[in-house]
């Protein structure tokens, strides 16, 4: 995309691609890094501002933004020109890193069947594994998969774990899992292939003050897991029903 303006070494390959009749993808990066998010968030707000009423949807992800514009208002060339205009002189939005959420988690074998196998594989105690999962503030890169499902990262290298070979048919709501270098929480009961370490009593997708469904986490937010006891988990309304299926 000649002429559009991100010029620092952080953004080596800015590309604008047609992916549908009325949809463009703004590709900013090729790999998942926490430093991407400042740029993605800055691009998100700049694009919203420049497109205004001609914007139908904007979906930020790890390295890209999907931009759906109103084809009754804009031709593709006009949409491309607006993207160039929006991204000219963009600078990363690092000052505003979103909200920090403390998420209580009951780490236990009964609700986190992969807790023991992963600790064993790493040659560390379960306590040490919990400590390391809690040691880092994670960045919310994207929402997807299901309403309120936040893809977070990046896990320390040593905790990198492949997805389960056969996904579970049912993962309980609130289940905290890891896969590759990411971590996430299942907002509602659903099928899933992530390695489950524990469970949070928090509701991740519910009604906001205005009564509209909304996600607790938003891209750019930060999440800190805090290990809590079974009693505290119950006190906060947690459901201790064990995960039925084990890997």
């Amino acid at each position: 995309m000649a002429g559009a303006g991100i010029q620092t070494s952080d953004v080596p390959h800015l590309r604008l691609e047609t992916v549908g009749m009325d949809t463009l993808i703004v590709r900013l990066f090729d790999s998942i890094e926490e430093s991407n998010m400042g740029w993605v968030l800055a691009a998100d707000s700049a694009l919203r501002q420049v497109f205004g009423a001609a914007l139908i949807d904007l979906v930020p992800s790890y390295t890209t933004l999907l931009l759906h514009y109103d084809v009754t208002m804009l031709e593709e060339s006009e949409a491309r020109a607006r993207v160039s205009q929006a991204l000219e002189n963009l600078s990363p939005d690092n000052g505003q890193q979103g909200q920090l959420h403390e998420v209580p988690v009951w780490y236990d074998d009964s609700v986190g069947p992969e807790l023991v196998p992963i600790a064993t594989r790493l040659g560390i105690s379960v306590e040490a594994l919990i400590e390391r999962h809690c040691a880092h503030d994670y960045c919310v890169f994207a929402l997807g998969f299901a309403p309120g499902y936040a893809f977070m990262g990046v896990l320390e290298d040593a905790l990198t774990t492949p997805r389960l070979k056969t996904p579970r048919q049912k993962v309980a709501a609130g289940s905290v899992g890891i896969a590759d270098r990411q971590t996430a929480i299942y907002p509602s009961r659903s099928p899933g292939g992530w390695n489950i370490l524990g469970r949070t009593p928090l509701t991740l997708f519910g009604r906001n003050a205005a009564g509209e469904p909304s996600s607790l986490f938003m891209p750019g937010d930060r999440v800190r897991f805090v290990s809590v006891s079974r009693e505290e988990f119950l006190r906060q309304g947690g459901d201790v029903t064990p995960l039925e299926e084990r890997s």
Binding site: G20, T23, V59, T63, T64, L65
Partner: peptide
């Protein structure tokens, strides 16, 4: 590939 937004009709 890294997950990205999906347009209608993809």
């Amino acid at each position: 590939m890294v997950s990205e937004g999906i347009p209608l009709g993809a």
